[in-house]
Design a protein around this nucleic acid. Structure first.
Length: 479
RNA sequence: CGGGGCGUAGCUCAGCCUGGAAGAGCGCCUGGUUUGGGUCCAGGAGGCCGGAGGUUCAAAUCCUCUCGCCCCGACCA
């Protein structure tokens, strides 16, 4: 079995760390809660960035960059916002060898600095909308951290937009929620439920927070992205005013939305297995690897020539492929290594294969059972199709896992049993009171993950208090 | 912040109880051997035993203090 990896059913938490270590995605830094993202892990992040950045631009946004440090006074202008964040802020008190007159906050998010800048940029309704995104790092002093899922410093993108009307802003929030859904489902092969958060889970200072919520293999939920409708709250706090079409001064309607390196944690817990990482082909740094198997130098030369030929052909078709020509490792060692790193397709080629003009092809998600002899003729051209099938298979598998573990429940007892037991996504009606929500959390540690936007069959009675309910949230234990 | 665990070779750790020449496995370097699922053999490099103080003829080991990290609970993307 995979050396150095515990099995998922033995200790899921340790398995998760093992996968990251063995795949060389990241490691702990000397600073508590911080991580070093290693080149292989960062390559995955770069692939996510490329895909998302394209979508962000296709939807009319541009990138910019705002400072890491925010003056305390600026952050404190939006009371609810600062209250939500101040306990987890890192504060810089000294610089240049002396105490600063005003402390600087390391951004936990950039609403304060960006909104106050937008205020200067808008004078007329013609200046709107402002549609800007930034790729940045942020710091939140979390009590408990886990690689990728929750680190003190993390990488993300944060979009910040300002609009003339409420309608436009709401449309923007939902548009970006949809972008996140597509990123997650089409690129990470990670199915998500979209919807709005309950009040207690709403971003500090926002009117509404929308989210994409995914189920991990252990049936816990992961909030994978959020899109916030900020109303005019930040406009009032940071003076984002413009002269409207009628000539009067109006407050802008703003939004913000973000996804982070947490997505990589989701990716791991959605698809990987007891052998290690499993990557969806669309995001894999290497989509395929060719391992030559030889005895003699002559064999080696001939095989490498054949392998490089296949690789060149594949690259011409846009496939990210690697020929593992390292001479000091046996083939078996290479198999294990690429397996742990989640490379979608492995091709083995030895003298016998060369003779019969074929390779042994193994899809990562199917394992040894899925080994096939593939003719070299037309092999490169087949790869994109194989990747597409695997991409779909990963999504289908994750979706099936969610369907198999989603339950409609109408009694609090039933809810307690599931959420304190094997875990699942529980669909259960809710009256909307924070008291009922808090009681569920107290007795099960589960929370409302999202109130789905599909409006069907939501009439009922609250699973906790029995009062009339019009909402049917997804309840689950979350990361 | 509470509870638990751990700091010794690049990594994983043994040694500590009962003080007396710093070890193993893996990895790394050299040479040979091997190559269709983690080759084998020989040789080699590599250490302020987390830090400070104390006890002692003598401390990785005992005592005090300290710093840090990991895991489990209360907060969060």
């Amino acid at each position: 079995m995979a050396r150095g990896l515990v099995k998922r059913n033995e200790d899921y938490s340790r398995w998760y760390s093992d996968v990251i270590r063995e795949a060389e995605l990241a490691e702990h830094a000397p600073v508590k809660g911080c991580m070093i993202i290693r080149p292989y892990g960062f390559a995955i992040w770069e692939a996510i960035q490329r895909a998302l950045d394209d979508m962000i631009k296709e939807t009319g946004h541009v990138n910019a960059y705002f400072p890491l440090m925010i003056p305390e006074s600026l952050l404190k202008k939006e009371a609810e916002h600062v209250e939500g964040f101040s306990p987890e802020c890192a504060v810089i008190t000294h610089g240049g060898g002396r105490k600063l007159e005003e402390p600087l906050y390391v951004r936990p998010t950039s609403e304060a600095i960006i909104c106050s800048t937008y205020a200067k940029w808008m004078s007329s309704w013609r200046d709107l909308p402002i549609l800007i995104n930034q790729w940045a790092n942020v710091v939140r002093w979390e009590m408990r951290t886990r690689l990728f899922l929750r680190t003190t410093e993390f990488l993300w993108q944060e979009g910040h937009t300002a609009h003339e009307t409420e309608k436009e802003a709401v449309e923007e929030v939902l548009r970006m929620l949809e972008v996140y859904r597509r990123l997650s489902e089409e690129w990470l092969a990670m199915p998500v439920i979209t919807g709005v958060k309950s009040r207690s889970e709403t971003f500090a200072g926002a009117i509404n927070t929308y989210a994409i919520e995914a189920m991990m293999q252990d049936r816990r939920a992961l909030q994978a992205g959020t899109s916030h409708f900020l109303g005019q709250n930040f406009a009032r706090a940071y003076d984002m005013q413009f002269q409207g079409r009628g000539g009067a001064l109006e407050y802008a309607w703003s939004t913000s939305w973000g996804v982070s390196t947490r997505l990589i944690g989701g990716l791991i817990m959605c698809h990987s297995d007891d052998q290690g990482l499993v990557l969806p082909p669309k995001l894999a740094p290497h989509q395929a690897v060719i391992v030559p198997i030889y005895r003699t130098d002559d064999d080696r030369a001939a095989l490498l020539e054949a392998a490089n030929g296949i690789a060149a052909e594949a690259r011409a078709l846009g496939v990210r492929i690697k020929v593992d020509d390292r001479d000091h490792l046996k083939p078996g060692a290479k198999f294990f290594e690429w397996e742990k790193k989640g490379v979608p397709v492995r091709m083995e080629i030895g003298p016998r294969d060369l003779e019969s003009k074929q390779v042994v092809l193994v899809r990562r998600d199917l394992g040894k059972a899925g080994k096939e002899f593939a003719p070299m003729e037309g092999l490169a051209a087949r790869l994109p199709g194989i990747f597409a099938e695997m991409q779909q298979a990963l999504f289908d598998q994750a979706l099936a896992n969610r369907r198999d573990h989603t339950i409609d429940i109408d009694s609090f007892d039933g809810m307690r049993e599931v959420l304190n037991g094997d875990l699942a996504f529980v669909n259960a009606c809710w009256c909307g009171s924070e008291k009922c929500e808090a009681l569920v959390k107290k007795e099960t540690t589960a929370t409302i993950r999202v109130i789905p936007d599909s409006g069907e069959n939501n009439e009922g009675v609250c699973v906790v208090c029995g009062e009339a309910a019009t909402r049917k949230p997804v309840w689950a234990r979350a990361y």
